[in-house]
């Protein structure tokens, strides 16, 4: 394998992190009509990190290829990734179909093969299904080392990568050689705004659109969502006038 680094950057289109999702009437999923979608925040961090690595090691990073598996509209977030500094991109158009992490990993494996990537950076989880599985499954399928929940990434001259992970009460440092998979945690970096000149340039960058069939994969889901329900509404508090009243209230509620 050549010593050049080719980064694969999977990004997912999700309901904007700042919005409160609403459960649909049928209680089978989250209402998507008329709702703002954005890039998954952890993936945004992955994009930022890939760009950082490329800027710091211009001679060693050959390419950054962004990929999104989702509806046609996911082109928007690919454009953002391109504007931020990805070179090329692929949309695997699955229409509105839900794709489970294992399927996503299989698709990504195909794209890794197609683009001969040797570093894959992706979010530790997507904020819509919170599965936290894709990076790990992909590492399994590829039989690559993985560094999950990265809070700091350091690329060494010998193509090893040191990754810091925040763990209870401290920091763990793991190290592996390329090819490898890194999943990003919140504190890895702070994503930046896209500037207009870059946005304009991104329009000219390649965006290929594939179907799952093109990759020789058939989508099949193993899970069925039975029902979604809102958490119970929190009861308002009440003020009591005295300690005695407090005690009798607590007794009434069988709290003491």
């Amino acid at each position: 394998m050549s010593s050049k680094i080719r980064i694969l950057l999977p990004v997912k289109r999700v309901i904007d992190a700042a919005l409160k999702p609403r459960i649909n009437k049928a209680q089978t999923g989250v209402e998507a009509a008329g709702v703002k979608f954005s890039i998954n925040p952890f993936d945004d961090i992955a994009v930022e990190e890939a760009i950082k690595i490329k800027n710091a090691h211009k001679d060693r990073v050959e390419s950054i290829h962004a990929v999104s598996i989702g509806p046609n509209k996911a082109q928007d977030i690919l454009r953002v990734a391109l504007a931020k500094g990805a070179d090329t991109s692929t949309l695997v158009d699955v229409k509105d179909q839900e794709v489970e992490p294992l399927q996503v990993s299989k698709i990504l494996k195909k794209l890794q093969e197609k683009y001969n990537s040797n570093l894959i950076i992706l979010g530790k989880q997507a904020i819509d299904d919170d599965s936290n599985q894709t990076g790990q499954m992909l590492a399994g399928l590829l039989n690559w080392p993985q560094a999950t929940n990265a809070s700091k990434v350091k690329l060494n001259a010998d193509n090893t990568v040191e990754v810091e992970r925040e763990i209870d009460g401290g920091v763990e440092v793991v190290k592996a050689s390329l090819p490898m998979i890194i999943t990003t945690d919140l504190r890895l970096n702070e994503p930046k705004f896209v500037t207009l000149p870059k946005m304009m340039k991104a329009k000219k960058k390649p965006l290929e659109i594939l179907k799952v069939d093109d990759l020789g994969i058939t989508l099949e889901n193993r899970l069925e969502t039975v029902k979604l329900e809102d958490p119970p509404v929190r009861q308002g508090g009440a003020k009591v006038g005295s300690v005695d009243e407090l005690i009798s209230k607590l007794k009434e509620l069988k709290a003491i």
Binding site: S38, D44, V194, T195, L196, M200
Partner: peptide, 23 residues
């Protein structure tokens, strides 16, 4: 934005990509 950037009326700029950037 493209047209006002291209003719030089505006020198630089950014656009929000999500709600938190917007805020």
């Amino acid at each position: 934005l493209e047209s006002i950037m291209e003719d030089g009326t505006v020198a630089d700029g950014v656009v929000s990509q999500d709600e938190s950037q917007l805020r």
